[in-house]
Nucleic acid binder design. Structure first.
Lengths: 342, 342
DNA sequence: ATGAAAGCGCTAACAT
DNA sequence: ATGTTAGCGCTTTCAT
């Protein structure tokens, strides 16, 4: 049997309440008594029973913060569904999840929101980090302060010691490249429409995609790489403009958000079905365009599982402490055609 | 506030004990009453409080089985240390970890041990699976029976739906290849001494290693691939024999277990320091040989974290159910030279 | 500063 | 078949 507060109380000749106060430094206990209690606990190798702790303190929940660049990006719907389900489960253990969404990828914005969370005293944080030195340092500061952090859906450069839950971007980029090779029969000009160069994962996708093209499909060339900031409006504008003259490409790889805007521009300009199109992820809009034959294939990454797993990971770190620094948890990369989504 | 047994009991006009029996199908409750209780629970969306459940049933622990091909393989010392620490923590929640070690990679042996575990009614299993169809099917049968399974340290082919905790073998093979290129200055003949062709990860390492040599070091050739079954004795015998005539290689890549036996043979035959040697993992014996300059570099994979994380993962699946099928949890691949181990 | 006691929600032994 | 009750180990009032 493990040591309990009750036993310590008996040995110290005090009540369980006093032991609890001493052990958790809640104050109101005479220094000499406190020392005696602490010594006994130490000697006996006391470790609090975490199940009991959870149950007893389920009244005043601790907060797990979630900060995602999700505003205006449909993809995160499923991620948030996974987060909600995980939140339901860990409620029993006295944890409450609070989500903040931000739009775009502004470093200052993200720092401000992290500060907000920090000020309210969160006990863990899941975040889609912007790939920036200041963000990285801020997250390391949280880790120093014993607040576990998980990079969700996108990882951060130099964050080898930060736990990551999300897809393997290199693999999804490579997979997209391979599919592009197949649907174009290995010939033509490809336009890459990426989300943001400030998001590490997007860059990996471009890299993996380019690598496969170079190694396996030398007759497929990349004409340009343009950036939407995951915004449909931006993508719409950029492609409308580009299509105001004769197109200089035969296929498009939509790396991240904004694909629907880009596709709308293509349709509005009368080019539907003229280009081969590969995207990542499967929102309901994209599924429609796959059915319609506008999108040829989409490379998926289990968003629900990412949300769910990120929260569960943080919960575990919060309850037990983190002994597995820098583990990378990759979800599966799936290819979806019009025939096999869901 | 979430629904509790107490509330259901009040609504159904019975005692909490009866509700507990009905909800958990422990028998001894009149069918009509049971139905009434179940209906109410359903209607209110009752979900048991997991923290309370853990606490109450911490008396009769459930068992998590661990089955590892670890006998005679030092590498697993740290894995088991991680497992022990995780076991300590989840004890509070009514889980007990039982470890079975086996020697070698015999499918029948492993099947028999799985059967033993199954017969005793384990509630989860961590295993270093042999890469064999029958093992795969057996594991899937466990999953069907709602017994969560984690592939630990080595994955299994066709196990895309099985959670994996371990290193990324392709990456560690590639890294070994890159280091081999560096220490040999890109020229010479390499002997690959692998563990077992029946272990998927070992094959990936060979593949990653060969790929880098081919792409980056065309003047490095692979003379042979021999198999130790992770046994020092076998490795000793094989290398002693091979060195009975003039060596046909300049460098060795020890892919898995048995490296110390192989190195002993090299030393005994008077060839210490004559070959460039790259290994994977860092047992205390290997660290000695690194210090001595016999091993040039070793590629590590955080064994402690693997053990720890595998148990924590199973614990989570057992307590909450598994919503994240087929996730791959990769530990970090680290390069160690004589200067930077620990 | 300390003690006593009431819970947290569930399980299990015992009583009826 | 059902009810009662005593825990599981900790936290948190409320007295003293």
């Amino acid at each position: 049997m493990a040591v309990t507060i009750k036993e310590i109380a008996a040995l110290a000749g005090v009540s369980r309440g006093t032991v609890d106060r001493a052990l958790n430094k809640r104050g109101n206990v005479k220094p000499e008594v406190e020392k005696r209690i602490l010594d006994i606990a130490e000697r006996l190798g006391y470790k609090p029973n975490l199940a009991a702790k959870s149950l007893a303190s389920s009244g005043q929940p601790s907060i797990i913060g979630v900060l995602v660049c999700a505003e205006g990006n449909d993809f995160f719907g499923e991620v948030l569904a996974g987060i909600d389900d995980a939140a339901d489960e860990i409620q029993d253990f006295g944890y409450h999840v609070q989500v903040k969404k931000m739009r775009g990828f502004d470093v200052e914005d993200q720092l401000a929101l992290i500060d907000e969370f920090d000020a309210m005293g969160i006990s863990a944080l899941a975040i889609t980090p912007i790939n920036d030195e200041r963000i990285k340092n801020r997250l390391h500061a949280l880790l120093e302060a014993n607040i576990p952090v998980v990079a969700l859906n996108v990882d951060i450069e130099g964050g080898e010691d930060i736990t990551y839950v999300g897809c393997d971007y290199m693999v999804s980029g490579q997979t997209a490249g391979a599919m592009m090779g197949l649907v174009t029969k290995g010939e033509g000009r490809v336009l890459i429409v990426t989300g943001s160069k400030r998001i590490l994962g997007h860059n990996f996708r471009v890299q993996g995609f380019s690598q496969v093209l170079k190694e396996e499909y030398p007759k497929l060339s990349i004409v340009d790489i343009i950036e939407t900031n995951d915004s449909n409006d931006t993508a719409y504008a950029l492609l409308t403009e580009r299509l105001s003259q004769a197109p200089d490409f035969d296929a498009i790889y939509f790396v991240a958000g904004g694909a629907m805007g880009g596709i709308q521009a293509i349709i509005d300009k009368g080019y539907a079905h003229q280009f081969k199109i590969i995207t990542n992820d499967a929102t309901s809009d994209r599924i429609k365009q796959m059915r319609a034959g506008v999108i040829d294939a989409t490379i998926c990454q289990q968003p629900y599982e990412q949300g769910y797993t990120s929260i569960k990971t943080l919960f575990e770190y919060a309850v037990f402490g983190n002994r597995s620094e820098g583990i990378k948890k990759y979800t599966t990369t799936n290819i979806k055609l019009k025939y096999n989504f869901k």
